[in-house]
């Protein structure tokens, strides 16, 4: 399992404004409607935004559309960019929003009920069926790739609000408050939903990872 080393996209938003003079100049040109500046920004920012959109969208085509939508709305609202965060941070946030909107607008297959995916208990509070330990993940890289494909497929099976929260909190590693503001939820609701989402994903993965009954 490789630890993801990509830079945290949102960290600069909470840090003191540290706009380089290059960036300040670019922002001035963008606000003045300089087409060449827009195009330069698209070419330089696209790879990272596309990587983000690929994590959020299941299909490559949708990821590209979402990034395109994000640039269009960024250019429309560049006047509202106040320079308190970095331009890349601001674009990341707009891209997350574009992905969320795109996913929600897509007709999806009927979703499973979250209740069916939560752990079941007896009246006395014990597990209905005792949890079994999981096998350690494969070390072989080919098997590992298959395992991770399977995990992505199971994440895709989660009801959308639960898939969203896993992506934002556990994958993109946004903090609770940032996630709450993006999803228009309270911090408490984000925590509860994330916990349910992890429990549901655990239920979906359990048949693949639990050790055989002795």
């Amino acid at each position: 399992m490789t630890r993801d080393t990509r830079a945290h996209p949102y960290t600069p938003a909470r840090a003191a404004p540290e706009q380089s003079s290059d960036e300040a100049a670019l922002v001035r040109r963008l606000k003045a409607g300089d087409e060449a500046a827009f195009e330069q920004l698209i070419l330089s920012a696209s790879p990272r935004l596309l990587a983000l959109a690929r994590r959020m969208m299941s299909r490559e085509e949708d990821a590209r559309d979402a990034v395109q939508d994000a640039f269009l709305s960024a250019f429309k609202s560049i006047d509202r960019f106040d320079g308190r965060s970095q331009l890349t941070t601001w674009l990341h946030r707009i891209t997350v929003n574009a992905c969320l909107m795109k996913r929600r607008s897509q007709r999806r297959r009927p979703e499973r009920s979250i209740e069916d995916l939560l752990p079941q208990f007896l009246d006395d509070g014990h597990h209905r069926s005792p949890a079994r330990p999981w096998k350690t993940p494969p070390a072989d890289s080919l098997e590992q790739a298959e395992t991770l494909d399977l995990v992505r497929a199971r994440i895709d099976e989660l009801p959308e609000p639960y898939r969203e929260i896993i992506i934002l909190r556990d994958i993109e590693e946004l903090d609770t408050d940032e996630t709450a503001s993006l999803l228009d939820l309270s911090a408490a609701a984000v925590k509860t939903r994330l916990h349910r989402a992890r429990q549901a994903l655990r239920t979906l993965l359990d048949p693949h990872f639990a050790e055989e009954q002795p």
Binding site: T2, L148, D149, V151, I167, D170, R198, R202, D206
Partner: peptide
């Protein structure tokens, strides 16, 4: 076992998308 598999679920999710 439940807590361990819950932790592993989080790790697997991160790994699946890191790749």
């Amino acid at each position: 076992a439940y807590i361990e598999s819950y932790k592993q679920t989080i790790r697997l999710g991160k790994a699946a998308f890191a790749q």
